[in-house]
């Protein structure tokens, strides 16, 4: 699967841009938190597309954001 680029994203309608990002993010997030992957991906899709693209290229950034999202989710569900 070729990497998602900003030009590929820009060619898609806004709603589809989030879909494209979600499809790339979900497997990565699922490998970290399988049970919460859908909700974590949903939360992260609220972030700017440019930052989401950066996270796809930077495992460290993604990991940090996923941990943040998990903490928020757990606080929300408590």
């Amino acid at each position: 699967q070729e990497p998602l680029t900003s030009s590929m994203l820009a060619a898609a309608p806004p709603q589809e841009q989030k879909q494209l990002l979600g499809e790339r993010l979900y497997p990565l997030i699922h490998s970290m938190h399988s049970a919460l992957a859908g909700k974590i991906t949903g939360m992260l899709l609220e972030i700017d597309n440019s930052e989401l693209l950066h996270m796809l290229e930077s495992p460290e950034s993604l990991h940090a954001k996923v941990e943040e999202a998990v903490a928020v989710l757990q606080a929300h569900q408590a």
Partner: peptide, 22 residues
């Protein structure tokens, strides 16, 4: 049942509707 609906959940292969109401 649970009334917690946030956050919207992403499912691979399913069109994302989480931000439709913006």
């Amino acid at each position: 049942g649970s009334s917690i609906s946030w956050p919207p959940e992403f499912h691979p292969g399913v069109p994302w509707k989480g931000l439709q109401n913006i």
